[in-house]
Design a protein around this nucleic acid. Structure first.
Length: 222
DNA sequence: ACCCAGGGTCATA
DNA sequence: TATGACCATGGG
């Protein structure tokens, strides 16, 4: 008997065939990934890169380096990332958390201190860490199997009519995790490809002529 | 001069 | 629980 066609996997395959591996997360260390996950909240990645470059250049890209800065000095370093006062506080909250977890020196050591659901709960309790930021940290900094849902995911998959768009984060996440094999490498690549498509093609005003999902997407069936 | 970007918190009803 | 205001820079 023929199994129902898994569109969720087909979308991945088409994106991968079109764009290839994305080599995510753009960041050298787990700690840099965590910092980037906070800084990129509602912010273009290019601005985040400048902020991270400032932190690196000043030798402050570490828990201690961040916690020993004044709020004002930290805000000044991350200014290009926008919301700099808000994000300065959030970065400090994250570093304080890592400290209390005994993971200040080795942020990815946190990985083996608890089960995945427990780690997620702890991250969500940190000020400034919501669901997407928590999951980005779990997947891209700690290498744990959690599918990351973001605004691009909602836009693309609602245009594909695979979701309505206004579901809860958890609901959308479950749709992906139920349809896909539980593999970190797949979750990693899929989300990265979604972001790439969202930035270049599936924009607020879509450029469907260049979309590798043309045959799958009702939006493009003019 | 707009619109948009790899969200999250907080106050209010 | 569900909305809306707020946070702010930089590119198109």
């Amino acid at each position: 008997m023929t199994r129902p066609h898994n569109t969720w996997i087909e979308v991945y395959q088409r994106l991968y065939q079109a764009y290839g591996p994305q080599h995510w997360w753009p960041g050298d260390t787990p700690f840099e990934v965590m910092v980037g996950a906070v800084l990129t909240q509602n912010t273009a990645w290019g601005n985040v890169e400048r902020a991270i470059a400032n932190l690196k250049a000043s030798g402050r890209l570490s828990c201690r380096g961040i916690l020993t800065l004044s709020d004002a000095a930290l805000a000044e370093l991350i200014r290009p990332a926008g919301y700099f006062n808000v994000k300065a506080r959030r970065l400090k909250a994250l570093c304080t958390f890592l400290d209390t977890e005994g993971a200040a020196e080795q942020p990815d050591a946190m990985r083996d201190t608890a089960t995945l659901p427990e780690l997620r709960r702890r991250l969500l309790a940190v000020h400034g860490v919501g669901e997407e930021t928590a999951d980005s940290i779990l997947l891209y900094a700690l290498g744990l199997p959690v599918f990351v849902v973001d605004a691009y995911t909602r836009r693309i998959f609602s245009r594909l009519k695979l979701i309505a768009g206004d579901e809860s984060y958890a609901r959308i996440q479950q749709s992906f995790e139920a349809a896909l094999p539980r593999e970190v490498a797949l979750y990693n690549e899929y989300h990265a490809l979604i972001v790439h498509l969202g930035k270049t093609v599936c924009r607020p005003r879509p450029r469907c002529a260049e979309c590798p999902l043309r045959v799958v997407c009702p939006e493009a069936q003019t």
